[in-house]
């Protein structure tokens, strides 16, 4: 009965989703009028659309070549600070909840190939993660992908070695990275005009040392995401059911 009702509701949902997609406006040129920003107070319309502005002026305004990075760190940096706070809150909640449960559990050893192979591969995974978050303003990537690659490297170690665990000292990295983010933002308030504003010269777009505070903030985010996701996985592994 429950299954039948589920199938009927899911079928109706599927058909209405496909109809919705059929009537969705086809993908536009970014310069079309419908993307234009309308001022809510006096009703005036800007003469360029928001995505078009990002694509045209990212290189000159922020010095970053990758427009996604520029949006995440520079144009919507405050939003990213909020996201990082959500991540921190969730990690704290996980470690609080699981500290109430019983810890410690015997596990059998992994086989030799996994153990030796993961020892061999781990430095390369960490190097790739670091490359991704240092070059966030030049190539695809940045702090969030790089941090998750680093965390998956530690996940490999946890799978291969049952006794491998992250020391509590990892929370130092976490707090240091979060503090660095806020301090860079406050320096923008002091040295420039507003919170998280760029106060370092932009430099030549395309060089490794360019784009002002974007690489600094993305390195901080990379450390924070990496240490927090590793800590979450480690907590889930340590707890006893």
């Amino acid at each position: 009965m429950r299954k039948l009702a589920g199938i009927v509701i899911a079928g109706i949902f599927f058909i209405s989703m496909m109809m919705l997609f059929y009537h969705l406006p086809a993908s536009h040129d970014l310069s079309s009028n419908e993307y234009y920003y309308r001022n809510p107070i006096n009703g005036s319309v800007a003469n360029e659309s928001i995505p078009e502005h990002y694509i045209k002026y990212t290189k000159n305004e922020t010095g970053a070549v990758n427009a996604v990075t520029a949006i995440v760190v520079e144009y919507r940096g405050f939003d990213t600070l909020g996201e990082v706070t959500v991540l921190f809150t969730a990690a704290t909640g996980v470690s609080f909840l699981l500290s109430l449960a019983v810890r410690g559990r015997k596990r059998e050893e992994a086989n030799l190939i996994l153990k030796e192979g993961s020892k061999l591969v781990l430095p390369f995974i960490l190097l790739t993660g670091a490359y991704i978050f240092i070059h966030g303003h030049l190539t695809p990537g940045g702090g969030f992908p790089g941090g998750s690659v680093v965390a998956s490297g530690f996940l490999l170690m946890m799978l291969a070695y049952p006794k491998f665990f992250m020391k509590d000292r990892i929370s130092w990295f976490e707090s240091a990275a979060g503090t660095a983010f806020v301090v860079i933002g406050l320096l923008g308030l002091v040295l420039a005009t507003s919170f998280l504003q760029n106060f370092i010269p932009v430099g030549t777009p395309g060089q490794l040392v360019s784009a002002g505070i974007i690489p600094l903030i993305y390195i901080a985010i990379g450390f924070k995401v990496g240490s927090e996701l590793s800590a979450i996985v480690n907590k889930m592994k340590e707890v006893q059911g």
């Binding site: 996604v68 991540l87 990690a91 996980v94 969030f144 889930m236």
Partner: peptide, 13 residues
């Protein structure tokens, strides 16, 4: 990009 990372931490919670 940010929603994916938030999603995994909320799932873990």
């Amino acid at each position: 990009l940010t929603a994916i990372v938030i999603g995994v931490s909320v799932t873990a919670l």
